[in-house]
């Protein structure tokens, strides 16, 4: 990715070097042609037709009708809203929490690395296992969570079935599942900070918050950028926990864009409309990726590196 390209100009490639370089790329290119370029072109083609797999009527070219349909589709807009909630939770909850935790763990003695790995357990277990675990935790009648809340006299919410709590319940799972991953990235970034810079700042008499805001945060910016890039774009893909825990309900309260596209494509088999939804997501994701990559650029570190 261009953002982390070194500052040196690209060396001119000789013929042999060029051939060798392309040979190494060949398997990737072949695979991407089949499994990325083909599906995209296919989706693009289907998205301008009224192709419905289950209707024995030939599909016709409908131009941009499938794209126009999203404008007046309330379920599309509510799914956009749900998707935005997942993104907002990443930016405003997961990232700050992860930064705090990374600092907390970074200050631990020897076993900091082990602690971060233990914390990573929610991230590395399968999302369907996560769904099962939380189905247990959120169980209205037999779940440990409601039992403890009951002891504290805080009532018995129905969590994933409640119109107001269903989305927050899923956001909580997403937080639990992915904040540790952000902690790992930020912790790796913190460990790679040049110790002499921090030391010098401390000797200068800067207090902790000055060191954090003026030195650490700017130095961490590329890592934070990478973390945001990965997680914001990943949150478009959130699917498994919705599929397992709420099936998009109650009503459409937890139907995000990915789930709605799945319903249109694989339950109603409106392939034309589902493809249009997919293309829209791809465009949005690509634009966002371009923008976020800007954040990962390394600041000028000439004086310390």
């Amino acid at each position: 990715m261009h953002a982390v390209v070194r500052r040196k100009p690209a060396p001119a490639l000789s013929g042999a070097r060029r051939r060798f370089a392309w040979w190494l790329m060949a398997p990737t290119l072949a695979m991407f042609a089949a499994n990325a370029v083909f599906p995209l072109l296919y989706a693009l083609d289907v998205s301008v037709r009224n192709y419905q797999l289950l209707i024995p009527i030939p599909a016709q070219f409908v131009g941009l009708a499938n794209y126009a349909r999203v404008l007046s589709d309330p379920l599309f807009w509510s799914s956009v809203e749900v998707t935005l909630w997942f993104i907002a939770a990443v930016v405003f909850l997961q990232l700050p929490a992860a930064l705090g935790l990374a600092l907390l763990f970074n200050g631990l003695p020897r076993w900091a690395g082990i602690a971060v790995t233990v914390l990573l357990v929610p991230t590395i277990i399968a999302p369907s296992v996560v769904g099962f675990q939380w189905a247990q935790i959120y169980n209205y009648q037999f779940g440990p969570l409601n039992y403890l809340l009951g002891l504290a006299g805080l009532g018995h919410p129905v969590w994933t079935a409640s119109p107001s709590l269903a989305l927050p319940s899923l956001l909580a799972i997403d937080f639990w599942e992915w904040t540790p991953f952000l902690v790992l990235l930020l912790f790796a970034g913190l460990s790679a900070l040049p110790p002499d810079v921090l030391e010098a700042a401390r000797v200068d008499g800067s207090n902790w918050s000055q060191v954090f805001w003026r030195i650490m945060l700017p130095l961490l910016r590329p890592v934070i950028g990478i973390a945001l890039l990965l997680r914001v774009l990943m949150s478009f893909k959130t699917f498994d926990i919705i599929y397992i825990l709420t099936a998009g309900g109650p009503g459409a309260a937890t139907e995000n864009l990915a789930y709605y596209t799945y319903i249109q494509g694989f339950r109603y088999f409106n392939l034309g409309y589902a493809s249009a939804l997919a293309i829209i997501q791809l465009v949005v994701v690509a634009v966002l990726a371009k923008a976020l990559i800007g954040l990962t650029r390394r600041p000028g570190l000439a004086s310390v590196s």
Binding site: N35, F236, A258, T261, Y262, A278, V285
Partner: peptide, 9 residues
């Protein structure tokens, strides 16, 4: 970053 649903069909 390609959403899996986008390429599933």
């Amino acid at each position: 970053f390609m959403p899996p649903v986008a390429v599933a069909v």
